[in-house]
């Protein structure tokens, strides 16, 4: 936040001075970050940089040690339940019930999110992530890629204002990555506000608007995607985060 123009932007996600300590160990040290409405931000960082911690704090799963953050205009400390209704969350764990079918999972979470017209919404999402033909199979029979796509459908169920994605690609085969990539690109086109955290520079570069690098609990670099190409990003990443 260094230019006057930026202050006019309406931030959908706004993080100020956010710190998190696990005992004496710092995971985040004074994070400042803003994501404008409709923006797709890719957050790169090596394992242990604090990506998961940041996303979990924004998703109200974890309280911060210090600092504030607002998601969709609501304070993460005071309006947790309000935020939970407005965000979609995908992590490397599918967060699904594997003894239920895909359809049952969506219906269950739909009821928790008070989704109206569940049936139609379920049809639409299963179609979008390409699982219509397997909707009545138990989730535990799904491949990792299918589970991850269903997890995305679950996260989109209530048409959230903000999507938080934490290493959604981890453990996926190349084909599944490509498939997920398509779905995410669709989100970017539809002007969803997205925060994608990943350690892999190949993922998310194409479809994002802005990039940031997180290392050792700090945002060490931030800029427009169009400002640099892959080579330059890789060099930057190596410089700030050590290994590329």
């Amino acid at each position: 936040m260094n230019s006057g123009a930026e202050q006019q932007i309406q931030w959908e996600v706004e993080v100020k001075g956010l710190s998190k300590y696990f005992g004496p160990r710092p995971a985040l040290r004074g994070i400042n970050l803003g994501i404008a409405r409709g923006e797709f931000l890719a957050l790169f960082g090596p394992n242990g940089a604090g990506k998961t911690t940041l996303i979990r704090i924004l998703a109200t799963l974890l309280p911060p040690t210090a600092g504030t953050a607002k998601v969709a205009g609501k304070d993460i400390r005071r309006e947790g339940e309000g935020i939970r209704g407005l965000i979609g969350f995908v992590s490397h764990l599918p967060l699904l019930y594997d003894n239920l079918t895909a359809r049952e999972n969506l219906s269950f979470f739909g009821r928790l999110y008070s989704v109206l017209d569940l049936e139609a919404r379920g049809d639409e999402l299963l179609e979008e992530v390409g699982l219509t033909h397997r909707q009545h199979d138990l989730v535990r029979t799904y491949s990792r890629g299918m589970q991850q796509r269903l997890a995305l459908a679950r996260a989109l169920l209530h048409d959230p204002a903000v999507l938080l994605l934490d290493e959604p690609y981890s453990g996926l085969d190349p084909q599944a990555v490509e498939r997920l990539q398509e779905v995410l690109a669709g989100l970017a086109r539809r002007n969803k506000t997205v925060l994608l955290a990943t350690h892999n520079l190949e993922e998310g570069f194409e479809i994002s608007h802005r990039l940031a690098i997180l290392a050792q609990g700090r945002i060490v670099w931030e800029g427009e995607r169009d400002a640099l190409d892959r080579q330059e990003l890789r060099a930057l990443y190596r410089q700030y985060a050590g290994a590329g």
Binding site: L61, E81, R84, L93, P94, L95, Y97, D98, S114
Partner: peptide, 14 residues
Amino acid sequence: DRGSLEGLLLSPVD
């Protein structure tokens, strides 16, 4: 262990 509790806690449920 299956991480589904997180899914539950993420939903707007009291």
